[in-house]
Nucleic acid binder design. Structure first.
Lengths: 194, 194
DNA sequence: CCTTGAATTGAACGCTCGTTCAGATACGCT
DNA sequence: AGCGTATCTGAACGAGCGTTCAATTCAAGG
């Protein structure tokens, strides 16, 4: 039997996954060949098919497992909407800064998914958005937040927070903690009365 | 002489540009062949080279002209930082909602640019960011804004505002004007005292 | 109708692509 | 040592890639 490398939650072996992750993030799914991935693993192209069904599945499993992990990373901690929103914002930033390559792929390669795979990924993403939206709605109901449209605010906040991956670099002017705190401050002000 | 189609600011004819724009936005630069672009124009592949130097140039000119237009679309209108920030936010949203395909390409295809072309595009993008940053710095200097790090705030706001293209659809629950106003409200609150 | 030059075709070049598979190799066990 | 199985190679398949260019078609002016 092949496929003995095991994997996170799919059928693709971890060595192949990691190589694909690096290359897809750097050059893009469509620009990376199976032969390049094989070379990165240190194997001939044919051997990849012992560890993954095909190229499309490789991409899908990277994205699916990423979103699965993201959803597992955060559940509402209680303590009121304000505290939950801060927790969400800080977790989101941490999680995304820890996995810039996966984040990049999950945003950029959506259109390279087959329709069925796309539907799955889109659903997972919506689940995540809905969690933030629920926090915002709770806050509005409790009078803590002043948000005319929670769905729009959700999209705006997630865009803002996720954008951190496009410019943040370790060792720069600001630490991760600085960034977390400053972003949280902007988030808080943007959804409370002003 | 060929290349008689003329063009916006480059050497590529408009029919070819528009076809490439549509296809690159839908399927991605690397996944679209010159033959597909030619078919969209209604011509054989060889004829494309009368209207563009090569595929890389096609992508570069789309992005360069897009950013050039974006920079021309807005200059500080005066009237104080708050008024300027509102003007910026509204222009940014309008401009991006009017050109979702170009915006998409300009964000997604950066890594498919040659190093020299990438440097040009990155410079134009930084010029745009610097304009917003200048407004924020002015506002801090005048005591209108409360922003601990104008550069970070710039990146956060642009991410948030640009993200509108990922979910907004005409004919949906909110009009463009609604979206503009709600986003502006979030932007304003996030950079003023709270 | 004929000429002239621009516009376009269609074939070709050398190359890479994802995927398959028969055969070779390496490894664990007795 | 020898067997059985897991792992991997290397060649092959048909297809598509960006780009070039000789040859052809087209449009307009005389």
């Amino acid at each position: 039997m092949a496929r003995t490398q095991g994997s996170h939650a799919g059928t693709t072996g971890p060595k192949v996954r990691d190589a694909a992750l690096r290359l897809f993030a750097r050059h893009g799914f469509a620009a990376v060949s199976m032969r390049q991935i094989a070379a990165e693993v240190g194997v001939q192209a044919g051997a990849l098919y012992l560890y993954t069904a095909d190229k499309q599945t490789l991409l899908f499993e990277l994205m699916r497992d990423h979103l699965h992990d993201l959803l597992q990373d955060w559940t509402p901690p209680g303590g009121g909407p304000l505290r939950e929103l801060e927790d969400f914002a800080r977790h989101h930033i941490r999680y995304h800064l820890d996995r810039p390559e996966l984040v990049f792929i999950a945003y950029m390669e959506l259109r390279n998914l087959s329709p069925e795979n796309f539907a799955v990924i889109e659903g997972l993403r919506r689940d995540y958005e809905n969690r933030l939206e629920a926090v915002l709605r709770d806050g509005v109901a409790e009078g803590v937040f002043e948000v005319p449209d929670p769905k729009l605010a959700t999209m705006g906040l997630i865009s803002m927070l996720t954008g951190v991956t496009t410019w943040f670099r370790d060792g720069g002017r600001l630490s991760r903690g600085d960034v977390e705190t400053i972003y949280w401050d902007m988030v808080r002000k943007s959804v409370t009365a002003g």
